[in-house]
Design a protein around this nucleic acid. Structure first.
Lengths: 242, 242
DNA sequence: TCCCGCAAAATTGAATGCAAAATTACGCGA
DNA sequence: TCGCGTAATTTTGCATTCAATTTTGCGGGA
């Protein structure tokens, strides 16, 4: 057999990797797909926290041998998604209270940085787009549409990171967002109604600072915004734990 | 043969991995050593930027087979130290002007975060230690002892990150520091005498903000401090290029 | 002399094989 | 029935092997 053990997977993406004429060509890569798929698989929560990662099973699932899968495991371990126990294989990393706080703080620091950089580089059109999203989000807030609100909220933060125009920042931000998402903390955050109004007010401040291109100020607001978000998440956790 | 192709390497570290009774035990790890060694090997500049990474050679150098080495390569690629070309192997990543700026900005963001967190957690003893380093650094400055100055400078920034007491931040900071160090930008930075006095004044501000535990303020100072450092580095590069 | 094409050699990416460790299953004794 | 030691099975980590792509070396033709 060559490549897939069986017709387990449909053709998926047999498309020849883009042969764009660009000079150094961004890796069309073949096995990075395994990495991406496995990462998604874990981030989406298909594996319980603390559960062992079944090599054999995933190999069949992805139709590959152990070698590329193990390479992906090493990378995911370096990203902090899983942990490699000496002779005991890989486990999905368990995120404790303490680590959750740490991750939120780093996210806050990255958002703060993104905001500062965005102030330096944001175009009028870029700002207008964020402003539009902000108003749409406010609309959802008024209608108590949590889902729509959250989508806009996410979009705004993403736009800010995008506006920062810094590949390293963007990649690091995405990595941490994944780690937090795996802990399923950000999904149902804003169910806390008290926090909702506060968050909305903070977003008013964010938009205002952004309009004035007040980098340092926006930086500070964004960090505190994440801090409050974390606090709300922690409170909610406490509620659920009761 | 089992493990090493020959007696190429001395026993190195055959010591049984610590069997500390701690609950989940930090990975005593076996192949992570290869990862660490290879990373150092590259960060230290043993491989020219843009050069291909010779698998076969390094395998012999480390006395291992290709499998663990390739795993390490994948991890280093995810860290941004090298890049994996489709069927052309690994190359040491070339850091361009643009990316250098990006990396410095992220470092600035991380230091800003570290400073803010340090203000929340720094003990009197911790502050005293940093203050001591600051004065020692000033002494080196007066004596025009660049080497001593730089060591203290590094130590101060490290202490601030340490005081932040955030493992995720510390790891990310270390990773970016490595990437920048590979570019050999931070080593000979402060040879610029004009910049030196300015940096010293900024450090006075840093210490002052730290003493007052003024998080937001320190955060801002640290970011600008890194920005100026970067600018000085860029200028120096420009000089060398002439 | 220079350029192009073709074959040999080297390198890469991935699969398979194998020894060492861990996990599980089982049987014995209390 | 329960606990414990031992053997079978599974799993892990790494080496080796194999097909495929790329790179290198060489010769013919303009």
């Amino acid at each position: 057999m060559t490549r897939a053990s069986e017709g387990v997977e449909p053709p998926a993406a047999p498309a020849p990797r883009s042969t764009s004429a660009a000079r150094e060509i961004l890796v069309p890569s073949l096995h990075d797909e395994v990495l991406a798929r496995l990462r998604d698989f874990i981030v989406e929560g298909n594996l319980a926290a603390g559960a062992r990662v079944p090599e054999r099973l995933l190999c069949e699932r992805f139709g590959i041998s152990r070698t590329p899968l193990r390479e992906a495991l090493k990378v995911l371990a370096s990203e902090g998604l899983i942990e490699l126990l000496p002779n005991r294989g890989a486990r999905v990393r368990r995120i404790g209270e303490r680590e959750m706080v740490e991750l939120f703080d780093v996210m806050g620091g990255l958002e703060a940085l993104a905001g500062r950089l965005a102030c330096e580089r944001l175009t009028e059109a870029g700002f207008a787009e964020i402003e539009r999203l902000h108003h749409a989000m406010y609309g959802h807030y008024l209608k108590r549409d949590l889902h729509g609100y959250f989508a806009c909220n996410q979009a705004i933060h993403d736009r800010i990171v995008e506006a920062a125009d810094n590949a390293a920042l963007k990649a690091t931000y995405a990595s941490f967002a994944g780690r937090l998402r795996r802990a399923r903390y950000s999904a149902n955050l804003d169910a806390n109604r008290d926090r909702w109004g506060e968050a909305m007010r903070e977003h008013e401040e964010i938009l205002d600072a952004l309009r004035r291109r007040a980098g340092a100020e926006l930086s500070d607001i964004l960090f505190r915004h994440l801090r409050n978000k974390r606090r709300a998440a922690a409170d909610r956790e406490a509620d659920l734990a009761e």
